[in-house]
Amino acid sequence: MKYATILCLFGMLSSMGGNAQELKSVDYKDGEQKLKGMVTSNAGSTKPGVLILPAWKGIDQEAKTAALDLEKQGYIAFIADIYGVGNTPADNQAASGLSSKYKNDFKLYQSRIQAALTEMKKQGADKVAVIGYCFGGTGALEAARGGLPVEGVVCIHGGLAKAADRPNEAVKAKVLVEHPADDASVKKEDIEQLVNEMNEGKADWQIITYANSKHTFTNPESPDYNEIMAKRAWNHTLLFLQELLK
């Protein structure tokens, strides 16, 4: 009886170990810039993939949690390194300056996203979608604006504006914008201009606005966190990804 109990416990522990999730570091490059992303443990198999663009401080816990949840949903998830090795901002001021550089130089931002997409393909991803938080949400829109090879993008409390002198181009990727109603960083005109841009680009787009929500409403580590709305936004993300990738 004791022997059987030990075997049972061993089997349970083995099963738990077999299902344990972890993220692996991945070294890649954009030109001469070394980059270090992270990928889920199911990489190497052929599966639909989700590229995660993190917020302005680089790869953070919110991006990691999303990646592990996406793995449970059957996706390969890859967290992009936009800034590159040695360039992680130390504080909000540094993050503001560095993220602004990429927002202004959108071609460079698109190049970093493309580098991550190329690496994702090497990791086994076939059809790919992009999701991004905050600065990464802006990047998700840039992936769509740049015509990068993705099925669709999800902009989660991202910046919506683009330079006034940039023309509106065709947008082939499907677009979901998850916008907090009380986001002080986004002007009413930004939303109106984005709607106009999407319509002129003949995009398949939607904007979901979440009530009583400030800028970083999806991040449990933020004072803006709204648990109910964050769960709704994540469910909307999963529903959209299922439509795109399965």
Rank of each mutant, 00 (worst) to 15 (best):
N42W: 05
N42T: 08
S45T: 13
I52K: 02
L53A: 10
L53Y: 08
A55G: 13
G58F: 04
K64P: 04
L68H: 11
D69Y: 10
K72F: 07
G74A: 11
Y75C: 05
I76W: 04
I76D: 10
I76K: 00
I79P: 01
I82G: 08
V85N: 12
G86C: 13
G86D: 13
T88E: 14
T88S: 14
A95R: 05
S96H: 12
S96M: 15
S99N: 12
S99K: 09
D105L: 11
F106C: 07
K107C: 11
L108E: 15
Q110K: 10
Q110T: 11
I113D: 15
Q114R: 12
A115P: 06
L117Y: 11
T118C: 08
T118N: 15
M120T: 09
K122Y: 12
G124S: 10
V128E: 12
V128G: 05
I131E: 09
G132H: 01
Y133P: 06
G137Q: 04
G137F: 00
G139V: 06
A140N: 10
E142P: 01
A143Q: 09
A143L: 01
R145H: 10
E151L: 03
E151F: 01
G152V: 03
V154Q: 02
V154S: 05
G159L: 02
G159Q: 10
K162P: 01
A163D: 10
E169H: 07
K172F: 03
K174A: 06
K174F: 00
L176W: 00
H179R: 00
P180I: 00
P180F: 01
A181N: 04
D183E: 06
D183T: 04
A184Y: 01
